[in-house]
């Protein structure tokens, strides 16, 4: 129940501005791949192209051999948007159930999902009554409530404090162990990317290109002790150098 994603020679221009150029990626079924890179390098754009929210100006995307549109029509996609996509008049629990009503699929019990995300006692609150971090977790729950086969996550934990971010990451790591799903995960947190991913794709900006792909050579899921391992320490250092020195210098 997870699908491979092939991204072939994807380019996307907005007028004269080339946002993405020649992006080639092959992502295996059940693989967890993180995208990191300077802001504006086209990470969101790439996710939106995979999600059939935007058309590439060149190249193509295949998800399990099918076009993004076909996969979307089968309700197999889940996109955790960077900004919450909740309905302002719906209580948290109803918003999660709304996804399930529209898709006719109950992937997770809605109340359980909110509890797992630390929102017990807030199920009946509307967006206006929730903090930014809570809202982002409701958004996350609503985006995956139908248990999509391909998970597209765009900085899903950016509004969360360190501890909540870790808890959410651990929840996904655990969940993906029993229900393998393909995940494309955009983040600005190198630690998070290394801890969760099979591979980390580093993008460079203007135009957005794949700069380097770093494989994390350790089996998933990884627990907290992985942070003390040599692989973790060396890989984060390497990625940090790439993002903060090499890519900055090239601008």
């Amino acid at each position: 129940m997870s699908v491979p994603v092939v991204i072939r020679k994807i380019g996307r221009a907005y007028g004269a501005m080339q946002a993405l150029a020649d992006v080639d990626l092959e992502i295996g079924a059940g693989e967890f791949v993180s995208f990191v890179g300077p802001s504006g390098c086209g990470k969101t754009t790439l996710l939106r192209i995979v999600a059939d929210l935007e058309k590439p100006t060149s190249g193509e995307v295949k998800i399990g051999g099918a076009n993004p549109k076909e996969v979307r029509r089968q309700k197999k996609l889940g996109l955790v948007s960077q900004r919450p996509a909740v309905l302002p008049w719906k209580r948290a629990l109803d918003d999660v159930k709304f996804t399930q009503k529209i898709t006719q699929r109950v992937g997770y019990p809605a109340d359980q999902l909110l509890r797992d995300f630390g929102l017990e006692g807030h199920e009946r609150k509307k967006p206006g009554q929730l903090s930014g971090g809570m809202l982002q977790r409701v958004n996350c729950a609503s985006a995956i409530a139908h248990d999509p086969e391909l998970l597209l996550m765009d900085e899903p934990f950016s509004a969360l404090d360190e501890m909540k971010r870790e808890e959410m990451g651990e929840w996904f790591a655990r969940e993906l162990e029993t229900r393998p799903r393909t995940v494309l995960f955009v983040t600005h947190h190198i630690d998070e990317a290394v801890l969760l991913s099979d591979r980390v794709v580093v993008f460079s900006a203007s135009p957005g290109r794949v700069y380097e792909i770093v494989a994390i050579g350790a089996p998933r899921p990884r627990d907290r002790s992985f942070r003390e391992s040599r692989i973790f320490i060396e890989t984060t250092a390497r990625l940090r150098k790439m993002l903060f020195q090499d890519l900055e210098a090239g601008r």
Binding site: A51, D52, L53, R72, R73, Q74, K75, L77, G78, L79, S81, A85, T99, I102, T103, S142, A143, H146
Partner: peptide, 8 residues
Amino acid sequence: DRMRILDA
């Protein structure tokens, strides 16, 4: 966008 993703 959310509605589109969910194929509403």
